[in-house]
Amino acid sequence: MTSPYQSRRVQFTLNGRSVASVVPLPTMLVELLRDHLGHSGTKVSCDTQVCGACTVLVDGHPVSACTYLAIDVDDASVQSVEGLAAPDGSLSPLQQAFIDEFALQCGFCTPGFLMMATALLQENASPTRREIVEYFEGNICRCSGYRPIVQAVLSAAGHGAEGGHGE
């Protein structure tokens, strides 16, 4: 069965490596990552940009991948949660801080919080508690009560962790 949609090739850098895929035009970035490239760390939850579970970084800036055309990352640099750990699998200081502070329970919102925290720490290496809370205005967690997440970011910032091991 032929698709009713036009397709286009998109080539970009994902967590430091060059990747390419041919996608139907209406494909959103989250679908490209999860279904075409097997990177299922980025989650779909509200599908309307308000929960933050689908957060990835495009050219260093956080976007809602659920509402971002896949073809619009052509030639861009994309970072997803898979890029935070080192190639040998060891967790970044930020990820370790999330574990140490019990900042996840079901874990569904966690990739989104990690990517937002990564963006924040790239912009502001020593955020205050208030700055962290405000930065997370568009991220929802149903399990943790948020405090452990904020504590994890404070702790990671204190240890000078601006981001992951990956690009």
């Binding site: 940009q49 933050g52 956080p62 205005e137 568009g138």
Partner: peptide, 9 residues
């Protein structure tokens, strides 16, 4: 405005 994703997109 919105949240940091809205402010960049």
């Amino acid at each position: 405005i919105g949240n940091p994703r809205v402010r960049w997109q």
